[in-house]
Structure formats: structure tokens, C-alpha cells
Write a protein that binds this DNA or RNA. Sequence first.
DNA 1: CTACTATTCTACTAAATTTATAGACTTTGT
DNA 2: ACAAAGTCTATAAATTTAGTAGAATAGTAG
Lengths: 144, 144
Amino acid sequence: MLSHKAKYGLKAVFYLAKRYEKGPVLISDLAQAEYIPKKFLEHILLELKKHGILYSRMGKGGGYALSKSPDKIFLGQIIRTLDGPLAPVPCVSKTAYVRCIECKDERTCEIRKVMKHVRDASAKILDTTTVADAMHSKMKLSSL
Amino acid sequence: MLSHKAKYGLKAVFYLAKRYEKGPVLISDLAQAEYIPKKFLEHILLELKKHGILYSRMGKGGGYALSKSPDKIFLGQIIRTLDGPLAPVPCVSKTAYVRCIECKDERTCEIRKVMKHVRDASAKILDTTTVADAMHSKMKLSSL
DNA sequence: CTACTATTCTACTAAATTTATAGACTTTGT
DNA sequence: ACAAAGTCTATAAATTTAGTAGAATAGTAG
């Protein structure tokens, strides 16, 4: 399951995508519009900024905006930033591989084999669908 | 990510599958063999039993065993029993649908649309792959 | 250079969930 | 009756998730 954090983050990005190139949006406005606790949203936006998805400006006239156009931002990137790897088990993650401690032998682990397929299936969708795609309900054929 | 509980549960089921029709296995033996905390494993096995996946007997000569043959047990069933729905968001779960509270309009929610695909892709694998399939690395063509 | 606005950062706190343990109880076989 | 094994209830410990507070920093306009 996605955490609230990731859901909030996705909502925020979609909100900003709708206002792309219309100037920065205030955290307070975003929080109010999407029913997200403001202080919690601060953390989320900051993380997304640090990962290069958002851009921000301080001071008057400041706020948050997308750092690139919605058709350049993949959903997988947003989710990984906020919730960590897509993989169901760490030993099949491509972006954050970690060996499973309990695992005697990775090569013969039944769980690993199946979960690799699950990871690939999810990644195939989330790493080919952009924010723009999702807004217009366009899924890449390859992911269906 | 799968919880430890689900991982332990899967390991236990595979262990029992290897000993299918060779008489019941003691919790202690299973715990030791798979490096699972015994008391925690008790709960897990009990849940799997209550969901009809395992069978058990008390008293001398007792223990746990699969309640049906490994080619009749789907991985999705095990994971759902121990970790809940496969769906990344509750509003796209087929087995445990719950409306998202923060969601203004389900029909236009961008997150929902994409996550539905993700859920379907995972379910396609986990609900067509049996314990026997996983043991022999046989994936259904439909899930690839 | 001052006032104001808005993000950034650090440090918590609270709640929920997950993981794990303890011990009494029940069932079964001999 | 006794020992062996799962069952049940309760709770504790650890971790993660969610949320809050407030000072620090940066930018803008005057």
C-alpha cells in the first residue's frame, strides 16, 4: 500500500501540474485545496524538491512549482522518493538493492523469483507513465 | 514492500510444500529451519490455518501441514491473508474495496486510474502463480 | 536597510502498525 | 495421568508513519 505521504505527494504534483507555467503555488494554498496537513506537506514538498521534481522560491511571490514539464516526470520517481523502492522485497529492487538477511540462498529463493516479476510489472507501468499521461488517462501501450 | 509476517508466512508455506504428504511439521522445527521467531510464527500459521491454507493437529504427533496440494494454493491468497489487499490504494482493491477519504471524486482521480493498472498487474501474477509453480519456477504465460 | 513573506531546517511528539514474547489453556496420543 | 503440541489472550518492544512547533534563512519591495 502507498503511504499517505506518497498519496499526498502525488496529489500535490498533479495540482502543480495543472498550474504548470502559471507561477509558483503557496504551500498553504496547496494544503487547503487538497486537504493535506500543511506542516506535513512542507516535508513532502521539500523531499520532492531535493529529488529534482519540484522547484521553489522563498519570499514574496514565492512558492512551489514543477521543475520540469509534466510529461517529463514519471510516477515511479515520485513514489520512490516518498515511499522508497517499488519492489515488494529489497532483494529484487533495481534502484535500492539490499540482500534479504533471512535468505539462505538468493538464487534458489522462490519468493525472490516471483517478486521479481511483480516488481517488473509495477515498474513497467510506473516508470513509463508520466504525470501528463496520468492526467489525460494515457497509458503507454507497453505497460498494458 | 511485503511485511516480515508475509515473508515468514511464504517461507513457511514453501517449507511445508516440500514436505507435503509426509506428515505434520512442528512449529519449532519450522521456526528453526527458516530462522523465524517461534512465537511470531505461531500467529502466522494460525492465520493461515484460519484462512484454510494450512491444517494442524494438536498433541503428540501433531504439527502443521498444507491443507491442500501446492498446486492449489495461490501466492496472492497467502499474501492477502497476512498483509491485506495487494492494491496500492484501497479504492482499487477488488477483495477489500474502501473509498479513499481524501478523494473528492473517484472517477476523475488520476492516482486511482494508474494504481488500478498496478494492482491488476500484480494480481495477475500473484493470483495465477501457485506454490507449486513458484517452486518449479513456472510462471503462467498470461502473467508475463 | 527594514519589514514582510514564504520556504527551510531541526527537533520533537503522537499515533499507528509491526514484530515479538509470555504464560495459561486445550487437545491428543499413549 | 502425563507429556507433547497447538491455541488463545494479553501485552511489550520496536519501528514507521503522521503530524507539530518554532527558529533560521532567503528573497522582494519599499
